[in-house]
Simulated assay, not measured.
Amino acid sequence: MPHDYRSATGKVPEVTPGFWLIKIAATTLGETGGDALSMSLGLGYLVSTAILALVFAAAVGAQIGARRFHPLLYWLSIVATTTVGTTLADLADRSLGIGYAGGSVLLLALLLASLVIWYRTLGSIAVDSVASPRAEAFYWITIMFSQTLGTALGDWTADSAGLGYTGAMMIFGGLLLVVAAAYFWTRLSRTALFWLAFVLTRPLGAVLGDFLDKPIGHGGLALSRAGASAVLVALMLVLIRLVPQRPASKLH
């Protein structure tokens, strides 16, 4: 297989239990933060998506341009993908009329296409292979699709399927436990399980974020979006400080 590794050390963090805790906090922040911009501030989905797309481009550009792994820069880029993913999915689902089901199917196709093209181009979609600008570009494009898909999938499950926020959290939390069990007790591809878990953490965060800030009459806690977002930022900073942040090392 062809490889495009710049060094033995990657530009993304090693996947540990702490990684997943921070990822879930980031995806929840993406929901509350995106909704705060588009709804609480009244900017709407289109304007909010344009603003957050610029933040995403700047953060990812800095991440790709960095010569080594920087935890804060990496997680800023993750938050940027999940916030723009929130408003972009809402724009497609609600403003453009594609709907949750149609949006989920379209985004799943884009996600799978991104993974296939990445694999055929560089020969690996494993996290430890993300050590060159080309690999990072594929990585962040794939993440962008996965974050947007997760928003649409979470809304579809909680709203259209009528499961509500707590029901959807149980569904996606249960699926993540199944993936974890497969990791520990089967020989299934670790790379495939990683991407499956990565996708599933996004709808979990989406419905958790909605649960925090949606009205009580709709099944939420009616917390302030800005306040919830501030608490989640603080939680992420604490976790980043406490959880070891090592770059993924090339295993090949």
Rank of each mutant, 00 (worst) to 15 (best):
F172T: 02
M170N: 12
M169L: 05
L223E: 07
Y45R: 08
S77K: 01
W118A: 10
R120W: 09
Q147P: 00
L188Y: 05
D4Q: 07
G99D: 03
G205S: 09
F145P: 05
G174H: 04
G162C: 11
I143M: 13
R202C: 07
D128F: 00
A59T: 14
S114P: 11
A135E: 05
L204A: 07
L88S: 07
R241Y: 13
P17V: 05
A62W: 15
L242Q: 13
G205T: 08
Y139K: 09
V79Y: 03
V178Y: 11
T142A: 15
T186Y: 03
D159L: 07
Y139W: 11
D213R: 14
K11N: 07
A137H: 05
L193R: 06
L251P: 00
T16P: 08
G33I: 05
V55Y: 04
D4S: 07
V207H: 07
D155R: 00
A101R: 13
G103T: 14
M236S: 01
F19H: 10
W20S: 08
A113F: 15
M169D: 00
A62G: 10
S249V: 13
G219A: 10
Q63I: 11
P133V: 14
D128L: 00
I22L: 02
L46Y: 02
F211A: 04
V55Q: 02
R6V: 11
G209V: 11
R187S: 14
G154A: 06
D159H: 09
L37S: 12
A228L: 09
G173V: 08
I143C: 08
L200V: 00
P244Q: 06
T81W: 03
A58E: 03
G97L: 05
L242T: 14
L153G: 01
Q147C: 13
S146M: 13
A36C: 02
D35S: 04
L176W: 08
G30W: 01
L111G: 00
G65R: 15
P71Q: 03
A181V: 11
R246N: 02
T28I: 03
F145V: 04
P17T: 03
D90K: 02
A131D: 10
R67F: 00
G227M: 01
S224T: 11
S95F: 01
R225Q: 13
T87L: 03
A161P: 01
Y45E: 10
A228S: 15
D128Q: 01
L175A: 11
I117P: 04
G217I: 14
A66T: 15
Q147Y: 11
A62M: 15
A62C: 15
M1G: 10
A89V: 02
P247A: 09
T86K: 02
H218T: 07
A137P: 04
D128W: 02
T81V: 05
G162Q: 12
P133M: 14
S40T: 15
E136G: 14
Y119P: 00
G30C: 02
L91A: 06
L175M: 14
I117L: 14
G123V: 07
V207N: 06
G219S: 09
A135F: 00
G33W: 06
I117H: 09
P17A: 05
